[in-house]
Simulated scan of single mutants.
Amino acid sequence: MPSKLLLLALIFLSSPAFAIYKCESGDKIMYSDTPCHNGKVDNMKEITIPSASVSNDSHAAQKQLQQDKKELRRLQQGREKQQAHEDRQQAQRYKIVEAKKKKCAESAQRVQWANEDATKAPIKSSERAKQKARRAAEKHQLLCGAA
């Protein structure tokens, strides 16, 4: 809308007056912006645009353009700020997921070691090693949701 208004203002500034010619040639009537070449000039009207209204329209168009640019900058800055916030949140979620994966891997390794210790334990301490392996597996299941 503002660009149309600006274009209209520029058109009016470039040609401050329009002339309309009514030409009669036989039984035909033609209207033109140039004088009649071979025909009777019936009526000539000149339309003038007051320079004050052109100036006001141009000023209003410039003011609207500046307001639109300001609003565009504000919206762009808001969008960039929102995008940066979303990027930070995504990075934070990624860190949390990676930390959980690392803890799950460490827990799985502890379960594996506890099971190995239980199978290699002497008969005298095998019950205690098996209990330790079960507890490690339970802790891993709580932490990672896997068996």
Rank of each mutant, 00 (worst) to 15 (best):
K28G: 01
A52M: 11
A129H: 06
V111H: 00
E71S: 08
M30H: 12
L5P: 00
R73P: 02
S107I: 04
E106G: 04
Q141P: 01
Y21S: 10
F18M: 12
Q67D: 13
E80D: 15
R73W: 05
Q76R: 13
N43C: 15
K102I: 10
C144S: 15
S125P: 06
K70T: 12
Q141L: 02
A118Q: 15
A108C: 08
C36N: 15
N56G: 08
A84S: 15
K28C: 03
L143M: 07
L142N: 14
Q112H: 11
A61I: 04
D68C: 11
L75D: 12
M1P: 00
E86K: 04
N56Y: 07
S3Y: 04
H59D: 10
A17D: 06
N56K: 09
A137K: 06
S126V: 03
S15L: 05
H85V: 01
P2L: 03
V54E: 11
G145E: 08
A9Y: 06
A129K: 10
E98A: 15
K101G: 04
A108E: 14
T48E: 11
A84I: 00
A17V: 02
A118V: 00
Q92D: 12
K70F: 00
E127H: 00
A147M: 06
N115C: 02
V41T: 15
K132M: 03
A60L: 01
L142T: 06
Y21N: 11
K22H: 07
V41Y: 03
G39H: 08
Q141S: 10
A19D: 14
H59W: 04
K102H: 15
S126G: 02
A129F: 05
K28L: 09
